[in-house]
Design a protein around this nucleic acid. Structure first.
Lengths: 193, 193
DNA sequence: AACCAGTCAGTTAGTATTCACTTACTTTGT
DNA sequence: ACAAAGTAAGTGAATACTAACTGACTGGTT
């Protein structure tokens, strides 16, 4: 499933609309306006509005998977790898805030199964990489084994998600990387034995 | 701002619809159907659809504030109080899953300022009570002071929120109290010095 | 007891607007 | 010449909300 350049432009515009003004703001009319063409032109590139969102989520999941997999190779130390993983996320969303919606959309929307599945897949991808790092850290003794890797992952993942939510709710008015690094650092410190 | 019994019925039906099938499913038509009367009758009780949601959030915030304030008096020990606070939340949402939407709606909707403000207020209320308990625990030495109370609150709050999200995404298919107690217990364990 | 006035909570039958999407045609780049 | 990418002008369905009206009940006056 390759994405053509024009499709990517549309996807980015769609993400912008959602991030700027909420899901209800993503209409074919507004999306076409932002693309400086008519509604009908959208359907030259996508079969439906849903396909736009599903393709976006697919694209995101693949992207994230790739980035996190690369980090696993360049950062053998589990603790440093977790740090780098979230740093990578902060940098990515700072640069591409239009994709923030993919973090928060779940649980409220359920506009379609395809969208829900796409969002869940992103969560699963992240969770898998984080869980691997935590397990390695437990094996090498750097992280506590008083609690399961799943539990520790959950705590770190929850910390990350709430941070992103607060950043978004504040209108992205603070330095998400700086504060994020401090939070993830604190969480890592707590699970370090 | 007192809520009449009939208004409460409508609010609960609205929450049900959102929790069952997402925000898009909350239409005046469907809401009226669930209430077994016509759309027009809705407007005998609320001025607008937005007012229904805003009133719901107001009601919830007041309810939560009351419950958490009561717990502060019956549970002087900070650690036990935090446990009781979240236990109270789990029990409440297990009993009233129609209000789950109030936890997740933020960040995606922004259908109106009133709704966003209502959701934020609920977060602020919870945060205030949790922060108090954590600060007390730090003062009495039961919680670590290696990190700020704000940071520790954030980590616990994030753990809670992700747990609720997963419960919701799973179709509420597991025991949210049991698993929730374990997670909050683990988080409390990590911040206990 | 009987009437009157007002309110509460519902009804039927609409309104204008917006939605995602379609059809038939035209322009543009190679 | 041809395919890709655009346009104009619509479609039916759904949306939140309104207008006008109705029956049941309530409290006060005679």
């Amino acid at each position: 499933m390759d994405i053509k350049p024009r499709q990517l432009e549309i996807i980015e515009a769609a993400g912008q609309l959602v991030t700027e003004a909420g899901f209800a703001a993503l209409t074919t009319k507004r999306l076409a306006e932002r693309m400086h063409f008519t509604e009908a032109a959208l359907y030259r590139h996508f079969a439906s509005k849903e396909e736009i969102l599903v393709t976006m989520l697919h694209h995101l999941a693949a992207n994230i998977d790739e980035r996190l997999a690369a980090l696993a190779e360049t950062h053998p130390d589990p603790k440093e790898r977790v740090r780098a993983m979230f740093d990578s996320q902060f940098t990515y969303f700072q640069k591409n805030p239009q994709y923030l919606m993919a973090i928060f959309a779940t649980g409220v929307l359920e506009a379609s199964h395809g969208i829900d599945a796409g969002i869940e897949r992103i969560m699963v991808v992240k969770r898998r990489h984080l869980l691997n790092a935590i397990k390695e850290g437990q094996r090498s003794g750097v992280f506590t084994s008083d609690h399961s890797a799943e539990t520790l992952s959950h705590i770190i993942m929850g910390t990350f998600r709430l941070h992103m939510l607060q950043w978004r709710m504040s209108g992205r008015s603070f330095d998400v990387r700086k504060k994020g690094r401090a939070l993830i650092g604190a969480a890592l410190d707590l699970i370090t034995r």
